[in-house]
Design a binder for these strands. Structure first.
Lengths: 136, 136
DNA sequence: GCTAAAGCTTGCCCTTAGGGTAAGGTCAAC
DNA sequence: GTTGACCTTACCCTAAGGGCAAGCTTTAGC
């Protein structure tokens, strides 16, 4: 028994282990985030532990709202031993600004909508402050 | 001169007056928010002031983040003299909850990402807390 | 050894709310 | 009469996958 044998798993196993769907994994490969996976003679994709780790990286990055394009850049830096953390931080801060922007927009919507809702009686009458507010 | 003549405008004029694009107006018509617009003999769409008002309504609602489907419901209530403001308020509060949900998700992302960025030196070295955090 | 179920493959259409472009008809000004 | 601005429909594109179908492979049970 060779302990150096890499344990290879099919896409379904990889999905289970990473918490992604098989569809996502194929999509990430097609999008160029992952190198083309090795295949069995029958054409089944096989993943080793390093590739599983990459998939985990992608999952975490997606969970933080990074786009596929941004993750592509992040992975490039991740793999690059000559990277500077400055580059990574720049990418992160660009995304952070995007998030802050979206939060601000949504909060503005929320504020206006809340005001409209608060001034609407919500009773049986047709008169409605929300509709009036939208008509303006 | 008949002051009752309805002033009709083409789609380009309607776009200018409402701040929408002609493409949006056609899209809203196709999506069923608007009745099919009247046409000139040449097939140009024509809008009267009531239709312009509806377009304004749609624009306000979109600005508050309502989806096309939600706006369809809102317009239905708007046109219905027998509506109750309760129904309108319910729709608004559903959407308000969606917004609050999104804000919460984004703020959670923001928080985590900010922590990672704060712990990243952002210098010339390859060691990077952000990449480490994503790898986890 | 046979068969059924589960797993894998590719390919296609669907989602939101429009943007972009093309090919062609129409209108107004010069 | 022609040029330029405006209008029409039709088609493809976006982001990040989900869902489904048809067909091949592997595995489990008998």
């Amino acid at each position: 028994m060779n302990t150096l044998v890499k344990t290879l798993v099919t896409i379904g196993q990889a999905a289970k282990q990473t918490g992604l769907s098989a569809k996502m994994i194929r999509y990430y490969e097609e999008a160029g985030l992952l190198l083309k996976a090795n295949r069995t003679d029958a054409g089944y994709r096989l993943y080793n532990s390093q590739q599983l780790q990459q998939l985990g990286f992608i999952k975490q990055a997606r969970a933080l709202g990074f786009s596929i394009a941004q993750i592509s850049s992040l992975l490039g830096l991740w793999r690059d031993p000559n990277r500077s953390s400055r580059e990574v931080k720049q990418l992160a801060e660009v995304h952070l600004d995007e998030i802050k922007q979206k939060v601000a927009e949504l909060q503005q919507m929320q504020k206006v909508l809340q005001q409209l809702a608060d001034s609407c009686c919500g009773d049986d009458q047709p008169q409605c402050a929300i509709l009036d507010g939208l008509q303006r």
